[in-house]
Amino acid sequence: MTATNPRIVTVRQNILKANDHTAAENRAAFAAAGVRAINLASSPGAGKTALLERTLRDLAGQVSMAVAVGDLATENDAARLRQHGAQAEQIVTGTVCHLDAAMVQGVLPRFDLAGLEVLFLENVGNLVCPSSYDLGEAARAVLISTTEGEDKPLKYPTMFNTADVVVITKMDLADAVGFDRDLCRENIDRARPGVPVIELSSRSGAGLDAWFAFVRGQGA
């Protein structure tokens, strides 16, 4: 007879504690270098890269910025961002649908953090998985475009619930697509009561001042 003698052990530990530990190291590195790290998350095509392109262009010479950008397979986004004169490093995540703290830590040696004021962490386009992974950022911006449908915040409550600011992009298309601004803002507030909301268009430039203030850490 090979009977076993089961023993129950109470653990009560966070499954992502290793990620959280690495995120804390990243946060300490950013704080020591005086860098404001901003994690950008959205669904694919909401305009993260377009907003960063515009930001790099408009704040060039005023704020020292760089980008670490996650993508499943390509280097396209980093190439787009480098055209604007800022350092952009691609994190190719392979089959993984989100950035985690270790991926960010792995790319940090490529940056001169001491010479930076803002480091953007452009997440993989995905409104589910990135919400679970703290990267060590100072602030998390979640983008939703006017072309996506106003109920996204309720479909992906965790992502919006972890946002420090919600950015509604492509406002120049709002009328053309029949975007219901009030409903969208109501749904955002249901997912994250009281969260600041910025409406902007990376193309026209409308609303960018509020975004730039957030980038600089001056509130949304």
Partner: peptide, 17 residues
Amino acid sequence: DELELDEIELAEPDLED
């Protein structure tokens, strides 16, 4: 918002066996 390992049941050989 929990995501945690609560309990584990260890499988240990019964010492008598």
